[in-house]
Write a protein that binds this DNA or RNA. Structure first.
Lengths: 328, 328
DNA sequence: TCCGAGAGTGGAAACGTTTCCAATTGGGAA
DNA sequence: TTCCCAATTGGAAACGTTTCCACTCTCGGA
């Protein structure tokens, strides 16, 4: 592998000048620039990232820790963040915590060792000691979609109460009062916010809620399937089901069909927080709150770079839209 | 941030000894080990990855280039590879080529700059110059799921012809001869292999194939939707549809419902190469070839490490299973 | 008792950059 | 022409590790 020294020799300039040309800062003459760039191209020179990082104390790498990469919401978000970062000259190191705090901590340690320049975080719940110490070390952090108590970082998150409001309106319009709610862990902000908004919204519509209709999983399909099964086992028969995220809705639908059979299940309307591509194929079609994962990813990257540049960053709630498929 | 020098001073040993303890190779006495580890823990020392990489010329990072992270097959594969790599002490840098050769090349360049130790590659099609030069530089590479002509690297891939054989058997059992085939790009090995196996299989079953029933997209949902629409626009009316990968089947189903309406579409049986979690919810349920993305990811990592260790690695075809949902 | 092998150690070089500093150059104003 | 300032340059230090080398010590065997 050619080094910058080889490039400098071939271009007939000093090592310092070659570096200034190739890293693109510092003053260089047009003549040096052409010579150095030609030499670099001829040698097929590719800068040694680790050496560059060691000396400059910047890696041009951002860490992105998501809780479940197999959740389409997060794979969309990750994809968008990665594109935006690349556009701005950064690389994204993606880590998947698998909705598990221990794995999250392992990755935070790796991030620290890799000396990432900034962190995009969609956390599991309360802040771990590992996270706290990372924050204390001054690493710029932006929270995506999920907030975490005691961590004072800018966030870019879906407006959960607005989204749940849309669901409540729709439920009312469709005349549903006996609604099963399958939530997520209340230790995760999205789980807590969506459940609170749902209950508060019903109360403000003047509808009381039988606790038998409420249960929660772990935001993964299997956990939600068990939660929905528990609700049905209590003997209650909802006319509609509300799943608090994509995998949760998947699990709930599975449980409905498993416990009641496909034909009885088809008499229950399902509504979901998170829109999945197959909702239109189910009978009856599943309506959903759609939030923009890609936008959150992009905003997060831009915000993080602002933060790294030392500029103040305002947190933002992103409004959702409702996809009403009940007519189909 | 504390450096290894701080650790050495605090432990009362030389820098060299501290390094030998912390990097875990070279001979060290029990006494030094305890002192150094204690000092490291007290200081909350985290090794500087870039410095380590620069000196040792190893980064402990593997690159994984997939073609579409939003395809559940690849997100599952990526997730499994990442877990396996972490278990073995490696980090995975994930890149998403978005089924686009230009983006793939951008990432290969970044990988080269980051000086990854090895590459897991699920390529787009023919080898790009960028890839060729990477291979020529001696970087260990393993191919995942997709092969590429002229690249002589070990591969771990689904047994496409075996899988397609299962589909053909099922089609015959169900009595389908007028089958629409929605394929992928023949520049991608999986696209070419699945189409070839399908046509050859029909021929060997003694069934001739009207080309009007055959079309191909780009292995993404939108492209497949257009391909399916083209088939229908030719006026042919298949009794079954075979989608050559997950997103392709999604697009095909969309087109069927769009062009024919949900009720007419429900008289067409769909079968897919790649099983998706929602296939059981559609009416009629979609049968599918299931291949083990997680296994491919894990085998790939293990194989790559073998290769990096200089040991010979045998390519492997992974058998598929068929999920028959036509009874449901 | 002596010798040799090997375990363990300290010191220093090296990895490939960026960046600081001082020196040189070039060009315009007086 | 002369002078001064800014632009540009070369040289060298520094980043935090690993690894080489040479040295010392310890222990077992002759």
């Amino acid at each position: 592998m050619p080094t910058i020294k080889d490039v400098a020799v071939r271009a007939g300039v000093s090592l310092g000048t070659a570096s200034r040309v190739l890293s693109g800062d510092g003053n260089t003459s047009l003549k040096s620039r052409t010579k150095v760039q030609a030499a670099a191209a001829e040698l097929n020179y590719i800068a040694n990232g680790p050496a560059r990082s060691l000396r400059s104390a910047r890696t041009k790498v951002l860490g992105l820790l998501v809780s479940d990469i197999r959740n389409p919401f997060f794979s969309e978000l990750a994809h968008a963040a990665e594109r935006e970062a690349m556009r701005l000259g950064y690389t994204v190191l993606l880590a998947n915590a698998n909705e598990d705090a221990t794995q999250a901590d392992e990755y935070l340690r790796i991030f620290a060792s890799q000396r990432i320049d900034g962190l995009l975080l969609a956390p599991q719940g309360p802040a771990s000691p590992q996270l706290i110490s990372l924050l204390r070390s001054g690493l710029p952090v932006v929270l995506l979609n999920r907030l975490v108590e005691g961590v004072d970082a800018p966030y870019f998150a879906t407006d959960n109460s607005q989204g749940v409001g849309l669901v409540l309106d729709w439920l009312q319009k469709r005349g549903h009062t006996d609604v099963a709610f399958v939530g997520g862990p209340t230790t995760i902000s999205t789980g807590a916010e969506r459940e609170a908004a749902y209950l508060a919204g019903r109360a403000s519509h003047g509808i009381s809620t039988d606790p038998a209709f409420i249960d929660a999983g772990d935001f993964l399909a299997d956990g939600a399937e068990r939660a929905m099964t528990r609700i049905l086992d209590r003997g209650v028969r909802p006319t509609a089901v509300f799943g608090a995220n994509g995998p949760t809705t998947l699990g709930a639908v599975r449980a409905l069909r498993q416990e009641l059979g496909a034909s009885a299940a088809s008499h229950i309307e399902v509504v979901s927080f998170d829109d999945l591509e197959w909702f239109e194929f189910v009978s009856p079609a599943i309506s959903a709150v759609r939030h923009d994962a890609a936008a959150i990813g992009r905003l997060g990257v831009v915000g993080l770079l602002e933060l790294m540049a030392g500029r103040p960053v305002a947190s933002q709630r992103i409004a959702t839209t409702f996809i009403d498929r009940s007519g189909a």
